[in-house]
Nucleic acid binder design. Sequence first.
DNA 1: GCCAACGTTGGC
DNA 2: GCCAACGTTGGC
Length: 145
Amino acid sequence: MQTWLFKSEPDVFSWSDLVARGAKGEAWDGVRNYQARNNMRAMKVGDLGFFYHSNEGKEIVGIVRVIAPAHPEAKDETGKWECVDVEAVVPVPSPVSLDAVKANPKLSDMVLVNNSRLSVQPVAADEWKEICKMGGVDLKKLKGS
DNA sequence: GCCAACGTTGGC
DNA sequence: GCCAACGTTGGC
């Protein structure tokens, strides 16, 4: 399993919006960047990801699961762009802020720090664990879900 | 609201 | 195929 990070402006689509969708989840559409698209193409059903609020909050607030692999966007007439579907899994009990990520030397290689503009990013296994620890996420609970 | 960083577009 | 111009993102 690989892990990822999804960015969204809470004004446009927030963590609570995704929670409200329940098991139906939501298509992660609107991505217009090849790197981000390629990351989505590499995702498998069951992969987990962080949900990050950009602009407002600037913190990791939840954990999502990929529930459908990359598929063409229905609305996209060019046929170039794709999206995966994700559902909310658990909230991060104490959200991990961008400041906290930057302040942690173990996370200095994170894409979030070095390429803040990429909206869908891979997260390394050790980074994943570290942030879960910081946020108070119970990893055992996650596995069983 | 500003601006730096980045990606894309289009003229040559 | 290069690169200047432009648009967008996102931190501050």
